[in-house]
Design a binder for these strands. Structure first.
Ligand SMILES: [Mn+2]
Ligand SMILES: [Mn+2]
Ligand SMILES: [Zn+2]
Ligand SMILES: [Zn+2]
Lengths: 141, 141
DNA sequence: TTCCCCGTTTAGAATCGTTCTAATATATTG
DNA sequence: CAATATATTAGAACGATTCTAAACGGGGAA
């Protein structure tokens, strides 16, 4: 136990620096919440609340700024499954999602498990950026 | 040419009645725009604008009400591809979409062309409501 | 046909997630 | 430590959507 900064925090600071982002108190706090445990799906509001509970003091605007900066740096990706709010995903690899509307929950589906066949080629002048599968779930009757 | 109502309009009025919706001037006007030509993807705003251009007088609130009522009746479905606005689709059958973000345009991909393999089974207590594939397009470099 | 009821429409206000503004604070470098 | 560029923030603004409550009108009954 060192007085300040675990290995994980040092690594995170390095990741932020590499991404051209100053490792501010707020970014480090959010980065720890996002990247310390396994893959996560958060909204700005859920992450802001979680940060507040963890004792971090930061504004919602900063959470939005940070989520977008992390996304632009490739540390996060956005997932569109619901018109009402934007989800951010710490798993930036190729994968898909279950989405349970009734509890607004995302669950990863590993990308290598899924095979999609028969997609038409992209229209002229366009190219495929990404193929996303969303499996909508409802409670079993 | 009869004084009022083509076959298409008569059919539409019947469809609305069957759905438990009174065939009001506004609903018939929107229904004609939506269902007279082939499959379409609209937003509330785009449909409102189109109705205005066609000489219909109706409020944006009515467009929202009508789109939701048509959706609840199974005449339309919603497509979530963009956090910013909600798309409504006159094709309620099983199919998927290309989405060109740069021009906010949806293009249908027939459902029977696409085969998706290797999806995990739904989590306990949940069942699959629908599988949606969105192919995001970007302009070719 | 006229009357009446209740579903429908509507303007405008409210809501909600998100973005913007511009003043303040802080990380970094010399 | 000073200088500078970046980052944070409160609160306003925004855009899509929903809500409210008053006016309207479809359509069955008489
Ligand atoms: Mn919104
Ligand atoms: Mn919205
Ligand atoms: Zn994910
Ligand atoms: Zn479609």
């Amino acid at each position: 136990m060192r007085a300040s900064g675990s290995k994980a925090v040092t690594d995170l600071v390095q990741r932020l620096r590499t991404a051209g982002l100053r490792p501010t108190r707020q970014r480090v706090a959010l980065g720890r919440l996002l990247f310390s445990s396994g893959d996560r799906h958060v909204t700005a509001e859920s992450l802001h609340l979680e940060a507040a509970k963890a004792g971090a003091q930061l504004s919602l605007a900063t959470v939005y700024n940070t989520l977008h900066q992390f996304t632009a740096s490739g540390l996060l990706r956005q997932v569109v499954v619901d018109g009402a709010k934007t989800y951010f995903d710490t798993n930036t690899g190729d994968h898909h999602h279950f989405y349970a509307e009734d509890c607004a929950t995302l669950i990863d589906i590993p990308g290598d498990a899924v095979v999609i066949d028969g997609l038409p080629k992209a229209p002229a002048g366009m190219e495929i950026e990404r193929v996303e599968v969303v499996v909508r779930l409802k409670p079993r009757v």
